[in-house]
Nucleic acid binder design. Structure first.
Lengths: 170, 170
DNA sequence: GCATATATGATATGGAATAACATGACAAGT
DNA sequence: ACTTGTCATGTTATTCCATATCATATATGC
């Protein structure tokens, strides 16, 4: 990877999570990208699904399924768990949203479009989540897997710690 | 890491998960190690805690908290969720057991003693779990974290895929 | 022995996730 | 137009995961 050795400048597009940015715009454009991609690939970005994606784009944090469900109810959608879970399943399957296993919660993907194996930084204090990417299957883990004959299909990489904002405040 | 480039031989002690081994012995000795370490460090390996650790050592799979709780009840211990969770908390905090976030379940540590940042290979078909180790904070993820000023305290690395046994059967 | 810290017991509740079944919306084939 | 198949949604119920809280017991250090 080209970014391995350099201490990446602040405007690096791969690192939205903890930086200030034009939020309204980022939500808008991400939604547009999603709509376009769905049209291209024959996927159906229905009202619930679109709403859930929009909600997750609004926050740059992970939201639990039941928080999402509450907000869906407020907007007049169905109010039972499967409503939220089905929308989330669709969004996760198609790469618009990622699940944060550590939190049992969901975030909008920060790099829509590209197929990628994401990695996350999760602030233990404020729950902010930043997405970056990693290729663990190429390093130690990949070697270990090859050694025992394990076929890696997907990897979960989540770092827990303290975000710059919270470090500053302390 | 020294293991980075070599394709690790089959008898590598870091890779118990998918190999045959003397199981009775591995349970015994792990329990002994745990007892010794607890004595040394003034930790209290009480009956419930010991039982939970023993259960997890018996399996080389992840067990859910309620499975553990059921078995505890069968053995005459308390039967309410906190009984299991408290024992698990103790064991996780002290490195005897790891939580598999992907499964919301727990496995006995395969490398007791050493402080390490574990990584797991989880078979999607049979739920077997093998532990190895990784140092994601030293690679791409670490670089990204430094770039934005995120302080990594702990990392979760879990690979999902198919284990050698299940690959063979298919 | 007594005070303090630590561990357990028991109750209750909240949040995450899915199974199972019914309904609606829509496109394609006849 | 009608049927059929597919996909999305709605609803009910249940299961599993997890923790807050309060009471009680048991070590351990002084």
């Amino acid at each position: 990877m080209t970014s391995e050795m350099r201490p990446a400048p602040a405007e690096d597009s791969a690192l939205v999570g903890f930086q200030k940015h034009d939020h309204a715009h980022c939500v808008e454009s991400s939604l547009t990208v999603a709509e376009t991609r769905c049209k291209e690939e024959g996927l159906r970005l229905t009202p619930v699904r679109r709403k859930v994606l929009e909600m997750l784009l609004q926050e740059h944090r992970a939201l639990g399924a039941y928080t999402i469900l509450d907000r869906l109810r407020d907007e007049g959608f169905g109010s039972q768990p499967p409503v939220a879970y089905r929308a989330l399943d669709f969004l996760v399957e198609n790469g618009f949203v990622h699940k944060i296993e550590r939190l049992n919660a969901f975030v909008a993907c920060a790099h829509p479009g590209a197929t990628h194996s994401p990695a996350f930084m999760i602030c233990r204090k404020c729950d902010a989540v930043a997405e970056t990417h990693s290729t663990p299957a190429k390093g130690e883990l990949g070697a270990a897997a090859r050694a025992v004959g394990f076929e890696i299909e997907r990897t979960v990489v989540e770092a827990e710690g303290v975000c710059p904002d919270c470090t500053e405040k302390a």
